[in-house]
Design a binder for these strands. Structure first.
Lengths: 136, 136
DNA sequence: TCACTATCCGGGTATATGCTCGTATCTATG
DNA sequence: CATAGATACGAGCATATACCCGGATAGTGA
């Protein structure tokens, strides 16, 4: 057996995620958001206006989790929430001008983290990684 | 460029981790612990008795995080904490009999999750994954 | 022995994540 | 149209994670 069955795949994955998250968070720190928030903001911008349920499906996150995360972004003044017009139950989230600006400022920082990661791991490793991750 | 630079490596990694964590957590649910707790318990058993600082280094987790996680295990009756004899500042954690028993019961469940993961991803993928994760 | 510094924890603060329950709203059916 | 079932949220509860601060204890050099 090539792979040691004594080390936990899941634990290794979790550790790598904590490490890489710290790298991206540090890169984004100058604009005051973390990688999870950056990702959410990008999803919201892509859709212009999304309900929490839809955002949860896009991000593959629990709806209530997304709701709380969106509230943090709202307190930061980066997004606003409005009731759906056709469906009053929906909480539609969209970017504020400040959100758009911050996202533009964040982009090169994120690209820096992506580039650093790519050069540290190597393109071959990265593409394998992406493939395997999709299979999980 | 083989790898798309529009998808975030970090976000993909985080998503895969959430998914795999859910798999392992579900596997361990019958004994009432999650994968993070299983990992901590194993580390504690390996060392028989460890300080929180040492445990944090082993797990590559913030010391205060480990302290809180250990408190949860203590409330569950799986570990006990004692002051260090030579160094009164240390909080030495060790397994209770219940902790030993639970860990034995958990082992086959964890092995099941490992096996399921291995067969789903394939050994080749897994070994590459492990290699890449170590580089992160 | 006495300060000074280093180390170990615990608690506070904040975010992240998932589960469950209750409420409001919508939808479809009789 | 009224009501039963489905759907969207929000809030409560628990854990996980990191950062910072302050108190207690160790260790060290004068």
């Amino acid at each position: 057996m090539l792979v040691s069955m004594t080390t936990c795949f899941c634990t290794n994955l979790r550790l790598a995620t904590r490490r890489l998250t710290a790298v991206y968070d540090a890169a984004l720190a100058p604009v005051g958001i973390n990688i999870g928030q950056y990702f959410l903001l990008r999803k919201i911008r892509d859709r212009r206006s999304v309900s929490l349920t839809e955002l949860g499906q896009l991000a593959e996150l629990e709806r209530s989790t997304v709701g709380r995360n969106a509230r943090v972004l709202e307190r930061m003044g980066l997004v606003v929430t409005a009731r759906g017009e056709s469906d009053q139950r929906e909480a539609l989230v969209s970017l504020t001008p400040a959100g758009h600006t911050l996202l533009k400022d964040a982009q090169p920082l994120w690209e820096g983290a992506q580039g650093a990661t790519a050069s540290r791991l190597g393109m071959a490793n990265l593409s394998t990684l992406q493939t395997v991750l999709e299979a999980i």
